[in-house]
Simulated assay, not measured.
Amino acid sequence: MATNPTPNSKPAIYLQDMNEVRKVFDRFDANSDGKISAEELRGVLNALGSDTSPEEVARMMEEIDTDKDGHINLDEFAAFCNGNSDPYQSAEKELKEAFELYDQDHDGKISAEELHKILTRLGEHCSVNDCAGMIKSVDSDGDGYVCFSEFRKMMTNHKQ
């Protein structure tokens, strides 16, 4: 069972509450059976443009699947999202990796076209204009792109 953080613990870097964790979990759980298999994990990573090897997927599964049943359940996923070891360092690394998946041309910023490409691969139905609106909502410097600091701000604090 997932536990609530103590008042002194750092908030999750990625996901702010269990509703957000559930939404992401459901995206990974392609067959809606309440658990994420290695194949489902690999499928989402491939859709995001990652060339993660089967060995790396196996390592990820081993790290996250704490009850060793061969699948990741919601509680294990939530614990992973909240970072158990060094929350800030692990989450910062994961955040950079996520940013790099969206930053398809590796220029240090996410364009509306790049966002559209990734969301389409994930099965979302939105236009490039919709994606431009999403970017505008977090584009604090007004350049029309999301840089890593804006991405981090968006992912760590939705109230800003």
Score class of each variant (00 low, 15 high):
1 M>K: 12
6 T>R: 14
7 P>Y: 04
8 N>D: 15
12 A>P: 00
12 A>S: 12
14 Y>R: 06
15 L>R: 05
15 L>F: 11
15 L>C: 08
17 D>E: 04
17 D>N: 12
18 M>Y: 07
18 M>A: 12
19 N>R: 09
21 V>P: 01
23 K>P: 03
23 K>M: 14
24 V>R: 12
27 R>S: 14
28 F>W: 04
28 F>E: 08
30 A>K: 08
31 N>T: 15
32 S>P: 03
32 S>R: 15
34 G>Y: 07
34 G>R: 08
36 I>M: 12
36 I>T: 13
37 S>Q: 08
39 E>Y: 10
40 E>M: 06
40 E>Q: 07
41 L>C: 02
44 V>H: 07
48 L>S: 03
48 L>M: 13
49 G>Y: 13
49 G>T: 13
50 S>W: 03
51 D>S: 14
55 E>F: 06
57 V>I: 15
58 A>Q: 11
58 A>S: 07
59 R>P: 01
62 E>W: 07
63 E>I: 12
64 I>L: 14
67 D>E: 08
68 K>A: 05
68 K>N: 06
69 D>A: 00
70 G>K: 05
72 I>S: 01
72 I>A: 01
73 N>I: 09
73 N>P: 03
76 E>Y: 06
76 E>C: 05
78 A>C: 05
81 C>P: 00
83 G>D: 04
84 N>T: 15
84 N>G: 15
84 N>Q: 15
84 N>Y: 13
86 D>K: 10
86 D>G: 05
87 P>W: 03
87 P>G: 04
88 Y>V: 09
88 Y>P: 07
90 S>D: 12
95 L>Q: 00
96 K>C: 08
96 K>T: 07
96 K>M: 10
96 K>Y: 04
97 E>C: 05
102 Y>N: 03
105 D>M: 05
106 H>K: 13
106 H>F: 05
107 D>A: 05
108 G>E: 00
108 G>M: 01
113 E>R: 12
115 L>Y: 08
116 H>E: 09
117 K>N: 15
117 K>L: 09
118 I>A: 13
120 T>E: 09
120 T>L: 10
121 R>C: 15
122 L>V: 09
122 L>Y: 14
122 L>G: 11
126 C>I: 06
126 C>E: 09
133 G>T: 09
134 M>F: 06
134 M>Q: 03
135 I>E: 02
137 S>Y: 13
137 S>C: 13
137 S>V: 11
138 V>N: 02
142 G>D: 03
142 G>W: 00
144 G>R: 02
146 V>T: 05
146 V>W: 00
147 C>Y: 01
149 S>M: 11
151 F>I: 14
151 F>S: 08
152 R>T: 00
152 R>W: 02
154 M>H: 02
154 M>V: 04
155 M>T: 06
157 N>D: 15
157 N>F: 09
158 H>P: 12
